[in-house]
Amino acid sequence: MIIRNVFMKTLYDKRWFVFGWTLGLMALTALMVTFYPAMHQDGSLEQLTKSMPPAFQGLVGNLDNLSRFSTYLASQLFDIRMQIIAGVMAIILALSISISEEENGQLRSLTALPISRTAIVVQKWLAMVVILSVTVLGTMVGILLFQTMINESIDLGELARLIFMTWILLIALGSLTFAAAMASGIRSVALSVGILVLAVSFIVTTFSVGVDWLKDFESFSIFYFFPAVDIVKEGIQLRDVSVLIGISVVSLVVTLIFFRRRDIR
């Protein structure tokens, strides 16, 4: 196989990463889908949920969502679990195609060739987007495959909306980490940015249900722009899409500005 550009090279380098994570996310999907019959209930727990303190309700989630397969998946898979697990994947991927290559000297070898720094950034970023697409599509395929085992069927439109939002959320997380890595060339900076965004988002989103003063800071969580259950029930909000795509675009621009003028190790 002839590899002609940085885009192809990055995809080739990461082929086992794609394979492993796609299988992993499919396995997670399979587990969550097969749990549905056991979790499914018809609203009898509603009273119990409402008797809980608000903070505890926030941690458990709205049990009403368990009555439909699509809202069950939205609340139990796409809300938090997928965001965190796939988010970690996006951060690892962003680090491995940027700072890891710089630390082991391969980035310097690339920049010694007649490839512009802009091309290196754009092609690596595009490869990251493609890899995230494949893993997210793997999740989609997993749901479609495993739902037949429990005789359920999700509305394709609802599933497509969830998958699309997961995709742009992961691109935003990956782009932020990629930007920090390529702009600074320092692993600790890149790792801090990725982990900080993920950790702050997790804390703010899970605790803002019960902690009143945190509500004012909900929009500081990147997950705020991916309300999975609302996406199933009401559709995608333009604001959410704009913010997530905006984060990716701004990150890419920042990467280009800084990477084009900094030292390569």
Partner: peptide
């Protein structure tokens, strides 16, 4: 740095400690 690739069209570079892409074969 932003325009160095233009001159690299006419430059060959090798270093003793040069790290080549580990996942590729020599031919690739």
């Amino acid at each position: 740095p932003s325009n160095a690739h233009l001159s690299h069209r006419h430059i060959g570079y090798a270093a003793g400690d040069m790290e080549l892409p580990l996942h590729l074969t020599g031919q690739q």
